[in-house]
């Protein structure tokens, strides 16, 4: 079968020790037997390793942060589209998703396809709405409360058993064993990330993750569960292994059916020793470990591209259990002339 030639733009080329999903996504696309991709890297910063990885990225353009405003952001995307005739964009970073979701119509007017969750899906799974999300869709979510003052903290003793997790609005989480510790972490987190601080019931167990892809009509096209084997001091997986867990897959399919989830997602779930599953976070995008799913037999980046183009796909029905990934770092050699070209022209 002849491979289809497509121009695909990918963000998240920050393949550092806290990697973005861009490079793993590209590896998936490169190994596709249906697509022959020309990969256009979209980089925010001029040292994102992906920019310099020849053979993976055909051409890179710098783009402004979405913070600058969607009009200017889209202006740059249009410029790139004029040169590269993009078929699909795969945004991979949390901070840009809102802008891409909002711009979906405009992009499709330019002939650029995306496959993203709806704004409603995106908002209702957010950290501070997750508890309500769980109640709505019948999924166990650890009980949690947003705390905005010391007064609120005093009342916690009536609602929680210690220990509790104290979480920042965007990042960071600490385990607190008593009220004094909660106050300490509250001060620390609120000064760093602002209010509210989220206090969450602590669920003891093993963290498991699922990467999945919904077709927007309730069907689960792909789902691969994984357990992290080794975690860096930044809390990122350094190694992981695909696991066989029918319950996890059932939870995933259930969630996608009920929410009619559109696009990729990563579920972070705690499995207790008693066999209970608690959802702790939903990332509304492809995770950085997606290449493990590709290797296990479910090429999620390829499927996402085909869905974006409006193709009907049959769900993957199996994956290899016991496939592992081990992350490593590698020093590429670059030259100031490459840096000059990127810095002065905004492309390489």
């Amino acid at each position: 079968m002849e491979k289809e030639q497509l121009n695909i733009a990918v963000t998240g080329l920050n393949n550092t020790d806290n990697p973005g999903p861009g490079i793993p996504v590209i590896r998936g696309l490169r190994e596709s037997d249906k697509i022959d991709p020309r990969i256009i890297g979209l980089a925010y910063e001029n040292l994102e390793p992906g920019i310099y990885m020849k053979g993976l990225v055909d051409k890179t353009y710098q783009i402004p942060y979405p913070k600058i405003g969607s009009d200017i952001f889209l202006e740059r995307i249009k410029y790139i589209n004029d040169k590269e005739k993009l078929d699909v964009i795969i945004p991979n970073l949390d901070a840009e998703l809102y802008t891409f979701i909002k711009a979906e119509k405009e992009l499709s007017g330019l002939g650029i396809h995306t496959f993203l969750p709806t704004l409603e899906q995106f908002e209702e799974r957010s950290k501070s709405n997750l508890y309500e999300f769980g109640q709505k869709y019948g999924i166990k979510v650890p009980f949690s409360k947003s705390v905005t003052s010391f007064l609120d903290i005093k009342n916690l003793v009536h609602e929680f058993d210690f220990p509790v997790l104290v979480k920042g609005k965007f990042y960071d989480a600490y385990l607190a064993y008593n009220l004094e510790q909660v106050i300490g972490y509250y001060n620390k987190l609120s000064s760093k990330w602002g209010l509210p601080v989220i206090v969450q019931e602590f669920i003891r167990g093993t963290e498991v993750n699922v990467v999945a892809l919904g077709d927007g009509e309730g069907e689960t096209i792909a789902a691969v569960p994984m357990r992290k084997q080794y975690i860096t001091d930044k809390g990122k997986a350094w190694g992981g292994i695909t696991i066989q867990d029918e319950n996890l897959l059932k939870i995933t399919r259930d969630l996608i059916r009920k929410t009619k989830w559109r696009g990729a997602m990563e579920l972070e779930i705690i499995k207790t020793s008693g066999g209970q599953y608690y959802l702790i976070e939903i990332n509304p995008r492809i995770p950085a470990w997606v290449y493990l799913a590709v290797a296990a037999g479910q090429n999620i980046p390829e499927a996402l591209v085909l869905l974006a183009l409006g193709r009907k796909l049959k769900p993957f029905n199996s994956y290899e259990v016991g496939k592992m990934f081990i992350r490593y770092s590698y020093d590429m050699i670059g030259d100031i002339s490459q840096f000059e070209q990127l810095s002065m022209n905004g492309e390489l």
Binding site: I336, S343, M344
Partner: peptide, 18 residues
């Protein structure tokens, strides 16, 4: 310094845009 305004300081490794 290049014609395009890119300047490189080999003593510090810093680059500039003029």
């Amino acid at each position: 310094i290049s014609e395009n305004g890119f300047m490189f300081d080999p003593y510090t490794g810093d680059s500039y845009n003029l």
